[in-house]
């Protein structure tokens, strides 16, 4: 991350805004704050933030509506802040173009990790993609369709390879069931979550030392999966 990156915080609770401003400020970010949707739209246009943190429970309008409005003209990464029992809200927000989410309560390290990933992906869009992606001990050669774990070759089925490659291109980011199904099985298959789950289980078995306690391919219950990259 670059010093001086602007983070727009859209949050109605003053105390929460104060925490985010202090935490991000001490890590070199410039924080601007909006307490309402109207303010948020104005600030997002004027200040050109590098990342937007959006609380889904805004008082003067739906956070989801705001997200859809933003996505009409902006590709700025958006990380939504939401409560634990609000899985449906998170999935809706992610499918509507949010980049990631944080479940309240969260700590500073989690917050910074999410922002780091969002910034990296936003910047990588302009760079030519390397066909080889390395994450921890996992190495994925997209051109040759080869995968190794700690140098040892691993045989993956075509579906497993496509799943892994898609997750790896978005390493660190959560991907919803719908996004994964759409990418791997096609647009008409977004309801078949059970196949996705079974193939993810197979993939964990091949890549993880302890598949019941995955280090890399983690599950976000009710939302989707994430390939961790740190």
């Amino acid at each position: 991350m670059t010093a001086g990156d602007v983070v727009l915080v859209i949050e109605d609770e003053t105390a929460m805004r104060r925490f985010l401003a202090q935490a991000l400020g001490s890590h070199g970010f410039k924080v601007i704050e909006a307490g309402t949707c109207a303010q948020a739209v104005a600030l997002a246009t004027e200040a050109r933030p590098a990342v937007i943190l959006l609380d889904l429970g805004l008082p003067d309008g739906d956070g989801l509506e705001l997200l859809r409005t933003l996505r009409e003209w902006s590709t700025t990464p958006v990380i939504v802040l939401s409560a634990r029992d609000r899985e449906d809200d998170k999935v809706q927000a992610l499918d509507a173009g949010a980049d990631d989410y944080l479940t309240k309560p969260f700590g500073v390290s989690e917050l910074l990790a999410r922002i780091r990933v969002a910034l990296r992906h936003a910047r990588a869009q302009t760079v030519t993609e390397d066909p080889v992606i390395a994450i921890g001990p996992i190495r994925i050669d997209q051109a040759r369709h080869e995968v190794t774990v700690a140098e040892a070759p691993v045989h993956l089925t075509p579906i497993e390879f496509r799943l892994l490659a898609f997750l790896a291109r978005h390493a660190g980011k959560v991907l919803t069931h719908r996004q994964l199904l759409h990418e791997v099985w096609g647009p008409r298959s977004t309801q078949h979550t059970q196949y996705l789950r079974v193939h993810m289980a197979a993939l964990r078995k091949k890549l993880e030392t302890d598949p019941a306690r995955p280090r890399w391919l983690t599950t976000e219950p009710g939302v989707g999966y994430r390939l961790r990259d740190e």
Binding site: E13, R18, F19, A23, S26, G57, K104, P105, F106
Partner: peptide, 22 residues
């Protein structure tokens, strides 16, 4: 109720982890 309880909890966790850094 959950919103009213969660927000202070999120602030407590957030602030405590911020302080912990220094």
């Amino acid at each position: 109720v959950s919103h009213d309880l969660r927000t202070p909890l999120a602030v407590i966790t957030g602030m405590a982890t911020t302080l912990r850094e220094t």
